[in-house]
Every structure is written in structure tokens, then in C-alpha cells.
Amino acid sequence: MSEFMIMLGWLGLYAPMALSAIGSIIGCAVAGQAAIGAMLETESGHGKYLGVSAMPSSQIIYGIVVMLTLNREMTETSAAGIFSIGLLSGIALLASAVYQGRSCAAAINASKAKPEIFGLSLAPAAIVEGFAVFAFIFALVISAGIPA
């Protein structure tokens, strides 16, 4: 039983990093494809499209920080906490990166047709980022209570 708990602990330790990486890969790929498509259609503003398509990459940074914060001696008492916080924060970061990618793609598509709404069209992506920050911050706060 204790070995199983330790295994779950290690899984939870790497989960925020791996899951947020998967999310960022998908989010950046979707938004990146939209940016490339917009470049084919427009004559200018290519830099801003590429910049927007990189927005979902922030989740992997949060994932790395959560992983480093959770990193401590793996014992039976600490493994459960590490597993729970790591896995759930990883899932939240993954979902936020995927959906932020879709929001960015929509923003690129809309601002291609109507450049004046570029800033406003990024609001949904920024709101999604806000939720990712919540998941990140509270994972750090809660992790302080995990026994060493």
C-alpha cells in the first residue's frame, strides 16, 4: 500500500508539468494555425497574430512552478497531498490552455476582418488566463499545508 501511495505521489508531482505542457502544446498549435491562416489573408499585422498565438504557453510555466513547489521528500504522509494538488492543478491548467488557444484563434479570425477590435477580442483569452492563475496561486497556497 505504501509503495502504491508513493507511486501516486510521484505521479502527482509530475502531473502539473506534464498536463500543462500538453495543454500549451494544443493551445499554441490551434492559435498558431489560425495565425498562419490570417497571415495568408492579410498584408500586415503578422507579428501581433504570432504574439497572440503564444498566449497559451504561460500555463506550462505555472505547471513548472507548481511542480517545483510540490517537490519534497516523498513519504506516505505527503504523497496523498502531492497527488491531489498536482493532478487537479494539472487538469485545470491543461483545460485552460486548450480553451485559451481556441479563444486566441477566434480573436485572430475576428481581428483579421476587423482590426480595430483586436484588443477587445483578446478579453475572453485574458479571462481564461485569469482562471489559470487562480488554479496556480491556490495550488501554491494549499501546498504549504502538505506535511514534509
Partner: peptide, 19 residues
């Protein structure tokens, strides 16, 4: 959720002009 059909043609659709 990860590989949804709803994002398959982002490049194609963004390369088409607004109608």
C-alpha cells in the same frame, strides 16, 4: 476534449476572407 474536431480547420478558416 483534447483533439476535438472543432479546431481542425483553424488554418483553413483564418486564411479565408471575411464575408
Amino acid at each position: 476534449m483534447i483533439l476535438e474536431d472543432s479546431t481542425r480547420y483553424a488554418l483553413l478558416l483564418c486564411s479565408l476572407p471575411y464575408l
